[in-house]
Each structure stands twice: as structure tokens, then as C-alpha cells.
Design a binder for these strands. Structure first.
Lengths: 220, 220
DNA sequence: GCGCTCGGCGCACAACTGTTTACTGAGGCC
DNA sequence: GGCCTCAGTAAACAGTTGTGCGCCGAGCGC
């Protein structure tokens, strides 16, 4: 858990505190560009911010603690995008295009956030790992809920919807990661990534349309 | 690149060298259980093996260098499993079951290998990241090639087959990761993971069967 | 205005890091 | 059998690390 986080920064002292807290988070996010959380030093962060090492403890117990705070932040912004995408209603082909575009745009606007999530999702810090895991689980649940309100989902069991939701979330994260790599020239260029992502979504959409929830082989 | 790796350890001196090299790799793999490569210290590794820090340089230039060597190793064993799975011929339902079982078995036998791959695939060490990336790309290519020799793939464009191959490889890696988390009690239990993985494969298989390669919207 | 709160500082601590140097000694080669 | 190769050693190097302590001093509530 994060240390004391004033919900209402009325006084100008709390405001100042919130500001250096932000600076710490930003510095951590930036340092994560070329290493992983478990190798970032506390001093390294404070040095980047310009405060003394001891001051770090006024905001976080740990570097891992800061990491957990970053999870809230990064996945909070992603959450907004997801919900926006879920409420959107349009024909299937367009919908896929819009979704892929939305992901591309998000990566362009918040590259550090998705880098952090992708890198630490299976990273070396257990607390951060599980924080990301439970958060993505919630996303999958939400997506499943939205899918249930879809005419195509007639006859789908709750478990199958959940499975589909996970598939979409995982695909989204991987696509975002691919876009990020494209942006830093580490993989195929952006348009190729988008083209692949669209076809993969089409594949899933096709499988979805011909799916039959099979009561003969239930959950274990 | 890795430092000198004797291909023919004839002499008992080269044999001894190969043995401590193995010990270094194993130690690294074990230390990776609870941290990521970029935070592992050279001294930490040599301490675990029981040799002096300086001796490390006789085998690797870097910890990153050792990481690249681990990529070859880990993905080499995975490669064998994939090829075995590709040559197997059976009815669709069975095939999926066998594939998922094969993944589960592999994770049970080589947990450290897949932990390493999953953790460092998007990890903080660029050299290792790209090594894993190109390796997985080759896997996708191979899978695509095998899929092409399938009666279902009639009329599929090369690009679409490639896309499908990537989808399968990504799904395999993620499933392996989920199995690993199950094994260490960090996620849903093994049978649930298997159940989900099977249904996801069924979804893809369904989409595959109804796919039409669209010449009207070609690659960008 | 006074006393208290508390973010930030400076300093010290012991422990650790990667890398270099000159060395030893068992095994290889002819 | 004697020289040579070379994996591994011990010691020293200059940095770095996380954490604890006591102390400011600006801002707060009363």
C-alpha cells in the first residue's frame, strides 16, 4: 500500500507535498525507460528529482511501494480509454478500426505508462505484479459485462464471456506493447502493427460469431 | 554475443570450464526467480556458484551477455516442444487438448525457463529483449509454415498465415505464463488455466475456419 | 502570536557494487 | 619432462547503495 495520500490537498503544504510526490512518480516512470523497477535505486530517484534520499520516505516506504502507486496511475488512464471504447456503438468493421486507433493514440500519448505496465506485469517485484494482475482482471470482467449486452452474445455462458473478455484485454495489452516497440524502432512499424492487430480482432470476431457455449464440457 | 563457447569439449579442462559455465547459467536462472535480470549483480551470481567475481569474466562479458546465452537455452528447449506439436496429426478437438497438455507439461518441467522468457521478453535489458523477440519471430514463421500445409488454410494469404502464427505463439507464451503463476499459487489454479486456454484455442480455430483472406484490403 | 506539525536536509553508517591487477597451479602439448 | 595455456584467486580500487539520526524552518491551527 502507498503511504499517506491526502485526498483533499487544501493547504498549500499538502499541495507542495503532492507536487514532489508527482515528481517522484514521474522520475520513476522515466527511469523505467531503460531498466526495470527492481533495479531502480531509491537514491537514483531522489537524485533525479533533486531532493535528499531521506525525503523519499516521507512519500513512500519503498521503491516497490512507489511501483504500486504507479500501477494505479497507469492503469487508471488506460481504464478511461477502455470504458470509452466500450460505450461506443458502431458497425463491426468500423468498431475494430476505432479500437485499434484508440490504442495507437493512447500509446502515443502515454508511452511511459504502457511501458511500465507491460514491463512490470511479469516483472521482478511481486507486489507490483499482483497489483497489475488484479487490475487487468477487473478490466476483463468489465469487458465481459459489456460483451454480454451484445446481440451476438445470445446463448453465451458467463464463463465463456469471461474468457472472451480476457482474450480482448490480453490482446489490447500486447497490441499496445507492439505499438510502443514500433515507436522506438524496435519492431515492425506502426502501420504493420495496426494491420496485424485489426486482422487478429477480425479473427476473434469471426470465432465469436460462430461460437456455441457447450454445456457438455463445463468448467472443471 | 556470448564469449567463447567450446563446441567440442574434448579436453577435461574445457569440460570443467563448461561445467562452471553451466553453474553460472543455472545460478542466474535461479536468482531470476525473484528479481529481474537488470537487477542481478555479477557478484551475486559468482557467490551463488562459489567462485571469485573475477572468474565470471572468463565466461561472460556482462550479466546481459549471460542473459543472451540464457535466451538460446530457454527457447531452445521450447523450440523442441513446438516442433513436436507441429508434426503431430490428429482431429481438431484432440489436437487442442494435446497442445495445452504439452504446454502444461513443459512448464512443470522447466519453470525457470519460461519464467525467464516471460519476464525478460519486455524486461529492462535491450539485448535480451531483442534476442527473445527475434527468436519468437522465428517460431511464428515456423508455425505459419506448418499451418500452410493444412487443408483449412486453402486460400489464405502468406500475410494472414503469418498473423495467425503470431497469434498462436503469443497465446502459447501467455498460457505458459498463466500455468507458471498457477504453479506458484499466484493466479487461478492449473485446471482453470487449461480450461480457458482450450476455449481460447477453440475460438481461434473457429475464426480460422470461417476466415476469408480479403484481397480488397491488402497490407499497408 | 505561539507552539506544533512535518517535508526536507546533512551526515554518518556499514554493506555492497563492477572492474583491474598480478598471481597460482593444474592440465595440455610436443 | 618442460614450457605454455588459462580457469580461478586474492586484494585493492573508487563508487554506490539503503537506512537511521537529529535538526532545521516554513506553514498550520488556535
Amino acid at each position: 500500500m502507498s503511504s499517506s495520500t491526502p485526498h483533499s490537498p487544501h493547504t498549500q503544504r499538502d499541495l507542495k507535498k503532492a507536487r514532489t510526490r508527482r515528481a517522484l512518480l514521474d522520475a520513476g516512470l522515466e527511469l523505467l525507460e531503460e531498466q526495470s523497477l527492481s533495479s531502480i535505486g531509491l537514491r537514483e530517484i531522489t537524485r533525479a528529482v533533486g531532493i535528499s534520499p531521506a525525503a523519499f520516505y516521507r512519500h513512500f516506504r519503498d521503491v516497490a511501494d512507489l511501483g504500486v502507486a504507479l500501477v494505479e496511475e497507469s492503469l487508471g488512464t488506460l481504464h478511461a480509454v477502455i470504458q470509452a471504447g466500450l460505450t461506443e456503438r458502431s458497425e463491426d468493421g468500423e468498431r475494430i478500426d476505432h479500437l485499434v486507433d484508440a490504442i495507437a493514440r493512447f500509446v502515443r500519448e502515454h508511452p511511459e505508462h504502457i511501458r511500465f505496465v507491460v514491463r512490470e506485469r511479469h516483472g521482478g517485484v511481486a507486489a507490483v505484479r499482483t497489483a497489475i494482475g488484479t487490475q487487468l482482471d477487473r478490466f476483463a470482467e468489465e469487458v465481459a459485462g459489456a460483451l454480454a449486452r451484445d446481440e451476438v452474445s445470445r446463448g453465451w455462458s458467463a464463463e465463456d464471456l469471461r474468457m472472451l473478455g480476457e482474450t480482448y484485454v490480453d490482446h489490447m495489452v500486447m497490441t499496445a506493447s507492439a505499438f510502443l516497440e514500433a515507436a522506438q524502432g524496435e519492431g515492425p512499424p506502426e502501420d504493420v502493427v495496426a494491420y496485424t492487430a485489426r486482422r487478429q480482432l477480425r479473427l476473434i470476431s469471426l470465432g465469436r460469431r460462430h461460437w456455441i457455449s457447450d454445456p457438455a464440457s463445463p468448467a472443471p
